[in-house]
Amino acid sequence: MYLQNPAATALHELQTAPWVRFAALALSSIFFLVDPFAAIGSFLAITANADAEKRSRMARKACITCFIVLTSFALCGQLIFRMFGITLPAFEVAGGLILLLIGLDMLEAKRSATQEASGDTEEASHKEDAGIVPLGIPMLAGPGAISSVMVLVGQVPKFFGYEMGLILGAITVTCLISYFVLAAAGRIRLVLGETGIRILVRIMGLLLVALAMQFFVNGLTDLGVIAKQ
């Protein structure tokens, strides 16, 4: 008689648990869109004349700004939906299109125009403190990251459910990782090199395109355009 390994069974149950799947979706979608690795080049250009302490302080301010912006949209997402009469399927389709455009830009190893407009880096390099704008927003907390958070919030059945906690947790983890990446941007660039960073951004872009298509398909399915399987 075949007996299942208890450890393997427990691992399978953990992997298929709804909260684990939702946590993985929330963290991957938010992190790929904040994408601190793609911001390394711009961050180093903006902080070219700054010392290590000021560079770390600017990275911290950028990530705190990103946290405040994304958390605000997470907490107010349901209210925004009701205020403007926006349905989740419509936002999933719109959000999927935005993520697709950003993902396609990432496949070419470049920042999307929604995250970094032409001239932003040069202009910010002359600012005394560019941690809030443009580093915090829109380079980290851009339209794509905000759209992803809004789509995730739209899937939360109860405001005080575990899903909301997972979304806020994913935002927190993403911002913490982003701080460490930007604070160590110089060392990361030396270790990975321009080629390594471009490869990493392209991989994240490919995963983001797949995620965008999933949002798009979910929206069309909820609208009844595509039959449910």
Rank of each mutant, 00 (worst) to 15 (best):
L3A: 08
Q4T: 11
T9G: 07
L11D: 00
H12W: 11
Q15G: 06
A17R: 00
P18N: 04
W19Y: 13
V20L: 10
R21A: 13
R21I: 14
L25D: 00
S29K: 05
F31V: 02
L33Y: 02
P36I: 09
F37T: 01
L44Q: 01
A45W: 06
I46N: 00
T47C: 11
A48T: 08
N49Q: 14
A50H: 11
K54C: 01
K54S: 06
A59F: 11
R60M: 09
R60K: 10
T65Y: 08
F73V: 05
L75C: 07
L75T: 06
L79R: 04
I80Y: 00
I80G: 03
F81W: 02
F81K: 12
R82G: 07
M83D: 01
F84P: 02
G85Q: 08
A90I: 06
E92K: 06
E92M: 04
G103Q: 08
L104S: 02
D105K: 10
M106V: 03
E108A: 15
A109R: 09
K110A: 02
K110R: 15
S112C: 01
Q115M: 15
S118K: 07
G119W: 04
D120W: 03
A124T: 05
E128M: 08
P134S: 10
G136A: 08
G136M: 07
I137L: 08
M139H: 03
L140A: 10
G142H: 07
S147C: 13
S148F: 00
V149Q: 00
M150G: 07
V151S: 06
V153F: 06
Q155I: 05
F159H: 08
F160V: 11
G161E: 09
G161H: 06
G161Q: 05
E163N: 12
E163F: 06
G165W: 12
I171T: 04
L182S: 03
A185Y: 10
G186P: 07
L190S: 14
L192A: 15
G193W: 13
E194D: 13
E194N: 13
T195C: 03
R202H: 09
I203V: 15
M204E: 04
L206Y: 06
L207Q: 10
L211T: 13
A212M: 09
Q214P: 00
F215M: 14
V217F: 10
G219W: 04
G219D: 04
D222Y: 06
I226T: 05
A227M: 12
K228P: 03
Q229N: 13
Q229E: 14
